[in-house]
């Protein structure tokens, strides 16, 4: 590996600062003892973390986000497996159109999707329900789930399944004993990525969520429209801390690189 010159090092350093500074500043501001957004100058305080407890809607919104992310990612994933296997293996009429359709939620602006869902759900009587929220999130996280599932399905040697067939395995057995375990790393990565997308989504969710089904980002967004106290920073800092703990745990259990690259277990 060649070493970076001083200019390149400076560039990389600036880039890292640019990426991390907002997060760091939010975390520092969260410890302010003041009643407004400011860098703590007269000591640190846990005041705003204690304040979270007085806002049960934040806690509830957090759990809505968790359940929403977990459910919509799981549903999107279970839909993406047959879709990915079909697209990866077969050449059929309308294959490209189907692949584009599956990816289209990435291309439609979330605002447009949000308005469309708002109208559609109120028409079919799902307006403001958790079910509606889950359905809308299934749509937006599906491309992410499909991408990673597809990557692992494409990379799989068909001969491995043919070997199982020649040994007498039925179609279902081949899927359960061979195909599924081999694409599992892709599925885990796909689920994780979809979960993050769902947890993060604000623009569309603002339209779909109703009081009682607000997600955490939506709750925070609505809060800072009316208030400018540092409560959102302490909530953000808590989420960042939870994410960090989750990532460390995942890395220990599974290996972060493997998770994010969706690599197969047959690779070293």
């Amino acid at each position: 590996m060649t070493r970076n010159g001083p200019l390149a090092l400076l560039y990389h350093a600036l880039f890292v600062v640019f990426m991390l500074a907002p997060i760091v500043i939010v975390c520092i501001v969260a410890f302010t003892p003041e009643g407004y957004l400011s860098l703590p100058t007269h000591g640190l305080s846990l005041r705003w973390f204690r304040t979270i407890a007085q806002y049960p809607e934040f806690i509830r919104a957090f759990w809505v986000s968790i359940w929403l992310g977990a459910l919509s990612s799981a549903i999107a994933l279970s839909l993406s497996v047959p879709a990915a296997l079909a697209i990866a293996r077969y050449r059929f009429k309308g294959r490209d159109a189907l692949a584009t359709l599956f990816m289209s939620p990435l291309m439609i602006p979330p605002v447009v999707l949000g308005i469309a869902f708002l109208r559609f759900f109120s028409l079919v009587g799902l307006g403001g329900t958790f079910v509606g929220l889950v359905l809308s999130h299934v749509v937006i996280v599906f491309p992410f789930a499909l991408r990673l599932t597809l990557a692992s399905a494409v990379g799989m040697d068909r001969a491995i399944e043919q070997a199982a067939v020649s040994l007498g395995a039925s179609d279902w057995t081949v899927f359960r004993r061979v195909t599924l375990p081999l694409i599992l790393p892709g599925l885990v990565s796909g689920w994780a990525l979809a979960f993050i997308q769902s947890f993060d989504e604000v623009t569309m969710t603002v339209f779909v969520a109703a009081p009682g089904t607000e997600t955490l980002p939506v709750r925070m967004f609505l809060y800072i429209q009316d208030n400018i106290d540092p409560l959102v920073t302490s909530v953000s800092a808590s989420v960042i801390a939870l994410t960090a703990i989750a990532l460390v745990a995942l890395d220990r259990l599974y290996g972060l690189e493997r998770l994010l690259a969706g690599r197969g277990i047959n690779e070293p």
Partner: peptide, 10 residues
């Protein structure tokens, strides 16, 4: 027996 061996890697 396949050219790529096609063993079950898991």
């Amino acid at each position: 027996v396949f050219q790529s061996y096609a063993l079950f890697p898991h």
